[in-house]
């Protein structure tokens, strides 16, 4: 079940996996996500569908190793199977008739931004992609974005590639140069989406963010992914994951999402030790 057909390392911590699942591939739309479980005792984690091939019945996920579950996921190889995979969940991104859009991806968030850039371009929209990474070794999907974007800007925190600085610097430059975007899609760390939203609010540019908070079931049952949007409680799994960035209360969700950080760190260290001490010939 849920067999891994292909596995590609995109950089030292980011992996792309292609998984067999006709049911999900048939229905998946850009912006939707799956919930997966690596093994029976594992967590359920949400991951955005990075790509899907309806003919071959496969979907792709791109994930960064950030904790126990992604470490265990990364440890699976081609022909291994996942314990559980369910989807497509959430609502697809609405690709209206935009003329010019800025698509912003922060780190592995680029993996989620890419299908949106692709769909926008297919719909006749001019796409400017701004991708931010910590350094040049972490850059992913540059060619893919180039294929669907009129302009691609890369920023790195340390200046080892492209512009040294943040994605918001580049976005601000472009806006100041007179680029008029109908819409900005911002996908990445919560703090990045918050900063982009604050910038675009000043310029009154519609901004869509993709929220990926803690989830368990992904079908509205647990309420773990709740967030405040325009003063109303929303559930990212059934009401989102896309929301109007100008209306999301980022500070609140940044705070709640940090609750398991210490437990996660300990668990991750334990998992890494376990894998590192394992003989490699089995």
């Amino acid at each position: 079940m849920y067999t891994i057909l292909d596995k590609v390392r995109l950089n030292q911590t980011v992996t792309k996996m292609t998984i067999q699942d006709e049911k999900i591939a048939k229905k998946a739309k850009p912006g939707q996500f799956v919930i997966l479980q690596v093994h029976e005792n594992g967590e359920r984690i949400p991951l955005t569908i990075a790509d899907c091939d309806k003919d071959s019945g496969t979907i792709s996920i791109i994930f960064q190793i950030v904790g126990t579950t992604t470490k265990k996921l990364d440890n699976l190889e081609v022909e291994d199977g996942l314990y559980a995979l369910v989807g497509p969940l959430g609502n697809g991104t609405i690709i209206s008739n935009y003329t010019k859009a800025a698509v912003i991806g922060g780190g592995v968030g680029g993996a989620i931004a890419y299908p949106i850039a692709k769909a926008l371009e297919k719909n006749g929209c001019e796409v400017h992609s701004i991708l931010g990474f910590r350094n040049k070794d972490l850059i992913i999907l540059q060619d893919e974005f180039k294929a669907v974007s009129k302009k691609v800007f890369i920023t790195t925190d340390d200046g080892s590639f492209g512009h040294k600085g943040l994605v918001t610097d580049t976005l601000s430059d472009q806006i100041n140069k007179g680029e008029s975007y109908d819409v900005v899609f911002a996908i990445g760390p919560l703090i990045m989406m918050k900063c982009v939203s604050e910038l675009t609010r000043k310029h009154n540019i519609k901004t869509v963010v993709s929220m990926n908070p803690i989830m368990i079931d992904g079908t509205g049952m647990c309420g773990g992914c709740r967030l405040m949007v325009d003063g109303k409680m929303k559930f990212a799994c059934v009401d989102g994951p896309d929301f109007d960035g100008h209306k999301v209360d980022f500070d609140e969700i940044i705070n709640r999402n940090s609750i398991y950080r210490d437990i996660e760190r300990k668990s991750y260290e334990k998992t890494c030790n376990l894998f590192n001490n394992m003989p490699t010939n089995i």
């Binding site: 368990i216 647990c222 309420g223 709740r226 409680m233 940090s258």
Partner: peptide
């Protein structure tokens, strides 16, 4: 379906759960 919250201040703090999430 979806869990109800009270709509009061502070319901999205760390350490606030719905019974559904906690029990699940």
């Amino acid at each position: 379906g979806v869990p109800r919250f009270m709509g009061i201040q502070g319901e999205n703090l760390q350490g606030v759960y719905s019974a559904n999430e906690f029990l699940t």
